[in-house]
Simulated assay, not measured.
Amino acid sequence: MTIIIDSDIATHPVARSGDVRHVTLSPHPSATTAQVGRALASAAEISGFGMDLDETLDWCVDVGEWAPRVGEGRTAELWELLAATAAIDVGAARILEPHLDALTILNQADRSDLVRPEDTWGVFAAESPDHRLRAEESGARWTLRGSKPWCSLASHLSRALVTASLDDGRRALFAVDLRADGVRAHDGPWVARGLTQVVSAPVDFDDAPAVPIGPPGWYLERPGFAWGGMSVAACWWGAASGIARRLLTPAQSADADQLALVHLGRVDASLWTARAVLAEAAELLDDGRSTRVGERLLSERVRAVVVDAAALTLTESAEALGPSPLTRDEQFARSSADLHLYIQQHHGLRDVARIGREAARQRAAW
């Protein structure tokens, strides 16, 4: 795990406690290192960064103006930005990642004309048998009718990319103004103890106007569909790296026993593995070799490795540190709860089974 301490963020309360560092995938400063440092410095000036949604969303909009896009030659720099944000505040990274993902998708669809400087974006692509959203065409006009589940921050965002079903059963992607007539975001249910501010609840659409993004099926078939999942994994890694730094103090103590060193060693090895996997995946995406591996398989492998590292970090930290930081350190307790919920986006053994299926098809061509 390569760590750079940027003196510009030393005023952040978490930075003073030693938990925040500029996390990088490469030992060499990148073209965006200074920009990331300035972004983290501005985040440090926000009281309640990650919890104050309006201020954090404004920060995300500013970052979106210069952040690299995945797959365009600077993927590692993008993932460093997401990881560094998560190391400061997991919720902030959970807010930033879909905003940047939406901007990438719009760019891939050659629809950057839809992006206004003040817009905050989400990506609502989850499906549920209890919620069905249909797209209906009337002349040159498209509207959405029905309900969409798991729409994070819909009450606070201005626009979103939303998947909906067509009459023939295919799914298509649409840009929607979340403040338009015919759009109603629910406030819950959301009883989560982690990511409490990132409410992910249904949104009802009643003849809401929508703009198609790409042809039917494009969202799922487009180059880079699997890339967003690896960007999420970069957030998991950064969050785990921030939590793991709490293991340094007991391990560096003169009274440190073997167990303190074991806890740190297990976490260090796991996070280093995750870092290496993310770094190689970024290279594969940027030079086009990811297609040889299979981008869905690459994404599933990356997520499986990183989620294991994050889960191990949470377990080892709890065993090494005991209940004290979880009950007395608000930042640590919130980061731990946030990350625990965030990694539930990985579907556990179901996702691992897809890796096994593809490995069997390729005869484990490692």
Rank of each mutant, 00 (worst) to 15 (best):
V63L: 06
T33D: 05
V305D: 15
D207T: 11
G71R: 08
V211I: 15
R74H: 13
P223M: 08
Q35V: 04
R141T: 15
Q108E: 14
H156E: 11
A31F: 02
R245Y: 05
E330T: 06
L106R: 07
S147L: 05
L173G: 05
P27H: 02
A175E: 14
S17M: 06
W236M: 14
E221Q: 15
G122V: 02
G64F: 03
T291D: 13
R132C: 02
S317L: 02
L106A: 11
A309I: 11
G73I: 10
R289E: 10
V203A: 05
I4M: 04
P13M: 01
G224E: 01
T32I: 09
A102S: 03
Q362T: 01
T75P: 09
W79Y: 11
D6T: 01
P209I: 10
S112Y: 04
W227E: 12
R245L: 11
H263T: 04
L271Q: 04
P223K: 12
H186K: 00
V191W: 03
R357V: 14
Q344T: 15
S200F: 06
L261Q: 12
V23I: 15
S335R: 12
V183D: 00
L53T: 07
G224K: 06
S200G: 06
Q331F: 07
T104E: 15
G224L: 13
D257R: 11
A135R: 06
D19R: 15
P129Y: 00
D255E: 15
P202Q: 02
P202A: 03
E45R: 13
H28G: 13
A84M: 04
L81A: 12
L261D: 09
S112V: 11
A281K: 10
A333S: 07
L314G: 07
A208W: 10
V123S: 00
R141C: 08
H346L: 11
G265T: 04
T143L: 12
D89C: 09
C60Q: 03
A240F: 14
E330C: 01
D338C: 12
E316H: 10
D168G: 00
T315Q: 02
L326R: 01
A360S: 14
R38E: 05
E77M: 14
T33K: 01
E221Y: 07
R266N: 15
W66N: 07
V267F: 05
I105Y: 04
